[in-house]
């Protein structure tokens, strides 16, 4: 009976739950789904992480390669994110070149990396003007169930902390690079941005961490990215219901608490990986 009502009138079905300040899956309005992070599972990548927010699963693999720097920035490396949304994760995506949502997500991740200054591109320089590191961060969504951006940012932070770059020396005589795979060093990560997404329902209710269904019924979406100094690295609110500055402040406070939760989770996972080795 409830399932029939849900199919015919999904919005009314949700409204009944929102009146009681809860959601159909039993969560509170400000509660996140279970977050799981798995680090270092892909050995062919230089750094990898799998992040799962409820059912939404994203795997991030980072490959480090050599490249020549641009002429006007001779001592800056590159960080190139790429989000792939294929028919594997959801039937709404078509095979072929990246669609709108994938392009938006890739641009968002690139902006988060730039805005938060989590890695200085100067740190990726091996030899100024000749050789720099380029970090290709590939995100593949395995299961799409809403809140893609939060999961991607989680996976990014965890994967970057897992990256180990081999020591590189430029041979003075030949000018070629000499790579020593045995001595590896981690990346210098200055900030850890974490994203928190909200869905606005009927211009009044604010739901944290929307599922795929909630996203399709929402009247507006909001994503806030914060770092550990309580600075906002990025806010993305593409249209949708208008929000008053007070509501925005509430969202920011929730984003601050979320940052602490995820940061401690990532630290815990990294500790356990280290102790296993």
């Amino acid at each position: 009976m409830a399932a029939g009502f849900k199919t015919v009138e999904p919005l009314e079905y949700y409204r009944k739950f929102l009146k009681e300040s809860c959601r159909p899956d039993g969560r509170e309005l400000t509660q996140f789904r279970t977050t799981t992070i798995n680090i270092g599972s892909i050995t062919t990548a230089d750094g990898s992480a799998l992040a799962k927010l409820g059912n939404c699963t994203v795997i991030c693999g980072i490959k480090a390669e050599f490249a020549a720097p641009l002429a006007d920035t001779p001592s800056k490396g590159y960080i190139v994110p790429n989000v792939e949304l294929t028919p594997l994760c959801s039937s709404r995506f078509r095979p072929g070149p990246p669609g709108e949502e994938a392009q938006m997500a890739s641009q968002f991740i690139a902006d988060v990396i730039d805005n938060s200054q989590m890695i200085l591109k100067e740190d990726l320089c091996i030899s100024s003007g000749k050789l720099v590191w380029v970090l290709y961060c590939d995100f593949i969504c395995l299961d799409y169930d809403g809140n893609l951006l939060d999961t991607c940012v989680c996976a990014l932070v965890a994967a970057l902390r897992n990256v180990r770059l081999p020591a590189v020396k430029i041979n003075e005589d030949t000018g070629l690079a000499e790579v020593n795979l045995k001595t590896t060093s981690p990346l210098k990560i200055l900030k850890h941005p974490i994203a928190t997404s909200f869905a606005v329902f009927d211009d009044t209710f604010l739901l944290v961490d929307p599922t795929g269904e909630e996203e399709s019924l929402a009247t507006g979406l909001l994503t806030i990215v914060m770092d550990e100094d309580e600075r906002l690295c990025s806010i993305r609110k593409p249209g949708g219901s208008a929000l008053s500055p007070e509501k925005l402040q509430e969202c920011i406070s929730r984003a601050i608490t979320r940052h602490k939760e995820v940061q401690s989770l990532v630290n815990e996972v990294l500790e356990s990986v280290k102790s296993e080795k």
Binding site: E65, A67, A68, V80, V134
Partner: peptide
């Protein structure tokens, strides 16, 4: 449709 990186690596 993708973020620009270096020409070759």
């Amino acid at each position: 449709r993708r973020v620009r990186g270096p020409e070759e690596s």
